[in-house]
Write a protein that binds this DNA or RNA. Structure first.
Length: 492
RNA sequence: CGGGGUGUAGCGUAGCCCGGUAUCGCGCUUGGUUUGGGACCAAGAGAUCGUCAGUUCGAAUCUGGCCACCCCGACCA
């Protein structure tokens, strides 16, 4: 049948693409570098949005929306930020098309409609937002400002991969303004923890919290924090970032406030974001050769009920049982699908829902009708068991919770087995080539050593972990002293 | 942006070297038999062969330009 998935071990990137396409999550559009997120994939994004949005609200943030266009002069105000994104910006230069006199039926850019100032399509929104905050902030009483926006951004990528890297993607970006450095720093870490919490509890994805090295830092930030996850092929994926911006943007956009003492000072800022890239991480962390495996907390469908029937009458009797179970589960807040299509066989449906990662499947056939039972199957382990109709609905909540935990534990075990301590550069290279995963090694803290290691091994410092014990040692590259190990990996 | 490759039905492809209006599979439509792990039979519909030009009696096939996409590198969430 046309639904075969390339095995992970044979070709990991093809396996990934097969899942994205065959689970009906997204496809390449006819617009270069841009994807179409299909309903099933978008449902997962909506689940992510719902979970994160609640966490943002619970930490005092509110949503707002800022323009997709940023005038070039505004964009370039914070120099480092502008420089960092300059190479991947899309620019609007004209505002009108007209009929092409040389080419009937075709349109051309109207040369008379050139914009006086070009508009940058936002690759991120610090510029427009800080430009706006300037108008909103006069006094310490106006602070803090705790705003998030759900938006699309454009980064003109040369090479794209569905969800992981596309020219346009969806994300959220939080932008906060504070009266003190301490408060902004706390906000930065608070949101990092929100992301870690979300990754671990919703996505069932264990992450390492850390700081970025100077070379990997967000352009314009004083400090960048991140969560790093490990994919099944041993490569790392940055799953979220939170930046302490210091007063950089406040200075660039002249955002000052009067303190209690009447003195003027620049505002302290943060920004933080996660994107649809998380969906890519979700796929690569959990799925197998049969398709997607979704953690129940992000699954658009929690339970699918598949009837096995020969006649319409049989379907009707099964439907009565199925609807009862579905109704009970829906009352408990679960999304249940009863797939009563008569043009596909049960086996086809089993395979299809496995491909789509639906956590739990209930099959009901004539034998079950006779016995008052159903067949219960879980996606994560593929285990099947027979249960009484009367008890099945009550079993689902704990089963879904168990699946959520199991997926997390499995990913954690994998990460642990793929995390290696090394003390020499030889071992470092060997582990990267033969095993992959996270490599914990000493580093002297210099840009030069970091760059040289990246150049020679393609591994980058994913982060300087926050919870690591201090431990004196010698940099694997330079031999200079080091106070703690950092996390190296090859990354997406 | 460098290096390589590919464009033929909704998808995946054969045919191209050696010119004669296009093959097969999946999917789709209709009818029938099926249904506890991706059913089968029969009959259908569906392609100006990426695009523009050239050579030729005749071009998917030969020649040239253009466009698009994919893979490998540099850059990146």
């Amino acid at each position: 049948m046309g639904k075969e998935i390339t095995p992970r071990l044979q070709d990991y990137s093809q396996w990934y693409l097969d899942i994205v396409k065959k689970a009906d999550m997204a496809e390449n559009s006819d617009v270069r570098g841009c994807m179409v997120i299909k309903p099933y994939g978008y449902s997962i994004w909506e689940k992510m949005q719902a979970g994160l949005d609640k966490m943002f609200k619970d930490t005092g943030h509110t949503n707002a929306y800022f323009p997709v266009f940023v005038p070039k002069s505004m964009f370039e105000a914070e120099e480092k930020n502008a420089e960092g994104f300059a190479k991947e910006c899309a620019i609007v230069t004209h505002y009108r098309l007209k009929n092409d006199p040389q080419n009937k039926g075709k349109l051309m850019v109207d040369p008379d409609a050139k914009l006086e100032e070009e508009l940058v399509v936002r690759p991120t929104s610090e510029a427009i937002i800080w430009n706006t905050y300037k108008k909103w902030i006069q006094s310490y009483r106006d602070l803090p400002i705790l705003i998030n926006q759900w938006a699309n951004v454009v980064r003109w990528e040369m090479r794209t991969r569905l969800f992981l890297r596309t020219a346009e993607f969806l994300w959220q970006e939080g932008h906060t303004a504070h009266a003190t450095a301490k408060e902004a720093e706390e906000e930065t870490v608070r949101m990092l923890n929100v992301y870690a919490d979300f990754a671990e509890n919703f996505m069932a994805l264990p992450v390492i919290r850390g700081r970025k090295s100077e070379g990997e830092r967000f352009p314009g930030a004083i400090e960048t924090y991140c969560i790093e996850a490990l994919m099944q092929d041993g490569k790392a994926l940055q799953a979220g970032t939170s930046h302490f911006l210091g007063q950089n943007f406040a200075k660039a956009f002249d955002v000052q406030f009067s303190g209690k003492d009447g003195k003027l000072d620049h505002v302290w800022g943060t920004s933080w974001g996660v994107s649809t890239r998380l969906i890519g991480g979700l796929i690569m962390a959990h799925s197998d050769d049969d398709g997607l495996i979704l953690p129940p907390r992000l699954a658009p469908i929690h339970v699918v009920i598949v009837p096995i029937f020969k006649t319409e009458a049989e379907l009707a009797s099964i439907a009565a049982v199925a609807e009862k179970i579905a109704g009970d589960l829906r009352k408990l807040g679960y999304a249940v699908k009863f797939d009563n299509r008569d043009n596909q066989k049960p086996g086809y449906k089993f395979a299809e829902y496995e491909l789509k990662g639906v956590p739990v499947r209930i099959a009901i056939g004539p034998r079950d009708l006779e016995n008052g039972t159903v067949e219960l199957a879980r996606r994560d382990t593929k285990e099947k068991s027979v249960k009484q109709v009367s008890e099945v609905a009550a079993l689902i909540p704990s089963l879904l919770e168990e699946i959520q935990q199991n997926i997390y534990q499995r990913a954690l075990n994998f990460r642990n087995s793929m995390t290696t301590h090394v003390d020499t550069y030889e071992d470092f290279k060997k582990v990267l080539d033969e095993k992959g995963g996270f490599v914990l090694a000493h580093w002297d803290g210099s840009k030069e050593s970091e760059a040289a290691i990246k150049e020679e091994t393609k591994a980058t410092i994913r982060c300087i972990p926050l919870d690591a014990a201090s431990e004196s040692g010698k940099c694997i590259y330079s031999g200079k002293p080091s106070v703690q190990r950092v996390v190296f990996a090859r990354a997406y």
